[in-house]
Amino acid sequence: MGSEILILQYLLSGITKGSIYAMVAIGFNLIFSATGVLNFAQGEFVMLGGMIAVTLSFYFPLPVAVAGAVVIVACIGCLLELLFFRPLRHHSILHMIIITIGLSIVIQEAALHIWDEKVRSLPYFTGNEISSVKIYGAAISPQVLWVLGTITVSVILLHIFLRYTLQGRAMRACSSNPEAAMLAGINISNMRTLAFGLSAALGALGGCVISPITMTQYEAGAPLAIKGFAAAILGGLGNPMAAVAGGLLIGIIEAFSVSKLPAAYNDVSAFAILLLVLFIRPHGLFGSPSGQGVREF
């Protein structure tokens, strides 16, 4: 009995962490399909979301602080696209990826200046550190439910946006065939900006809900970018549901490896599994072998 509860506990903690990886992986996907760029500054959106929300929470009620942080980070995402990616579109993809790594370092430095090295966190959305909800005997923090709920709702909303609205469909058209999209009268440059904004907003929202559990620091973004990237690749680039599955899987693998292996192997196990999967299925677990699949979403 006790071991079952323990397993459930690990599973839940894995799913919680994995949800954030999933959020980052979805952001990766959005930007990749719209622009072809792998944005390694994706994790910084999560960090900025958490940090800005913490600062805003000193002056505003929590919901306003979170909403404000999401909007501000979305604007930062749009701004990055306008300032760096739009003018540099004609450079090679490799250049663009290096630029995203550079941006991620610059954002970290800026965050260090603004917020120093202190670890911060938002208050628990409901209850506090010691309140817990029992699920099949496992005790979990209500914040975990907030994380899972927020991510589920965001994924569903994003899905509806991309499948059933004109602008969402236009965004998919841009990744499916940019030239044809232009010929249909879609301003694809603006669609790319929108993709950056959306992806930043998702990251920031993830950063806010996870902040009470994992804390936020200026350096918190970079590892998330790597894990999120791994999740996106594991699922197969190009499909939001696959990104979610990839994220959850990496989170769960990590949680269980902590229980069996020394903490130092924490990251190794997730990447070992990633490499193994890529060795067997180069297009990820759910990706399709045709190049087409990469541009889906």
């Binding site: 236009a170 998919r172 065939n177 044809a180 999209a181 010929l183 087409q292």
Partner: peptide, 17 residues
């Protein structure tokens, strides 16, 4: 140059963007 991963209806909708 149709949007090959979108449905026929969606292709038409995009034409009328």
């Amino acid at each position: 140059q149709i949007f090959s991963d979108m449905t026929v209806r969606e292709n038409l909708i995009m034409g009328g963007y």
